[in-house]
Amino acid sequence: MNASAPVPAPLATSTVPAPLATSTATAPLRVGLVGYGLAGSVFHAPLVTATDGLVLDTLVTSDPGRQAQARAEFPDVRIAASADELWERKDGDALDLVVIASPNRTHVPLATAALTAGLPVVVDKPLAATAAEARELAALAERTGTFLSVFQNRRWDNDFLTLRRLLAGGELGEIQRFESRFERWRPQLKGGWRESGAPEEIGGLLYDLGSHVVDQALVLFGPAVRVYAETDLRRPGAEADDDTFLAVTHANGVRSHLYVSATTAQLGPRFRVLGSRAGYVKYGLDPQEVALREGLRPGRDAPWGEEPEHLWGRLGSGESPLTGGGTPVRTVPGDYPAYYAAVAAALRGGGPAPVTAYEAAHCLDVLEAARVSSRDGVVVEIPAPPAAP
Rank of each mutant, 00 (worst) to 15 (best):
N2R: 10
A5I: 02
V7D: 04
P10Y: 07
T13S: 13
V16Q: 15
P17D: 08
A18N: 01
T22H: 11
A25Q: 13
V31K: 00
V31M: 01
V34L: 05
V34Y: 03
G35K: 06
G40S: 04
G40P: 00
V42C: 11
F43M: 02
H44G: 04
A45F: 03
T51V: 01
D52Y: 00
L54H: 00
L54Y: 04
L56R: 05
S62M: 03
P64L: 09
P64E: 09
P64G: 13
P64A: 14
A70Q: 08
A70P: 03
A70N: 04
R71Q: 12
P75I: 00
D76V: 01
A80K: 02
S82R: 02
A83M: 00
S102F: 07
P103H: 09
R105F: 03
R105E: 12
H107G: 01
A114H: 10
A117M: 03
P120Q: 05
V121R: 02
A129Q: 13
T130Q: 01
A131M: 04
A134C: 05
A138W: 12
L140A: 15
F147I: 03
L148A: 08
N153V: 09
D157H: 15
L161Y: 03
L163K: 02
L166Y: 09
L172R: 13
E174D: 15
Q176A: 04
E183W: 05
L189T: 06
G191P: 02
W193Y: 15
E195L: 12
E195D: 11
I202T: 09
G203L: 14
Y207F: 15
Y207H: 14
G210L: 08
H212V: 07
Q216C: 12
L220T: 00
A224F: 05
V225Q: 13
T231W: 05
P236I: 08
A240F: 04
F245N: 12
H250C: 09
V254G: 06
V254E: 09
R255T: 14
Y259A: 13
A262E: 15
A262L: 15
T263D: 08
T263I: 04
Q266R: 11
Q266S: 14
G268V: 08
P269R: 06
R270M: 11
L274A: 14
S276I: 07
Y283V: 08
E289S: 12
E289L: 14
V290Q: 15
A291I: 10
L292F: 09
L292G: 11
R300P: 00
D301P: 13
A302G: 08
P308T: 06
E309V: 13
E309D: 14
W312E: 07
L315W: 10
G316Y: 04
S320I: 10
T323P: 11
G326I: 11
P328G: 10
R330D: 07
Y336V: 09
P337A: 07
Y340E: 00
A341I: 02
A342E: 02
V343W: 00
R348S: 04
R348D: 01
P352M: 03
Y358N: 07
A361L: 11
C363F: 06
D365T: 07
L367Y: 01
E368S: 07
A370S: 15
S374E: 06
V380P: 05
V380K: 12
E381T: 03
A384F: 09
A388W: 02
P389I: 06
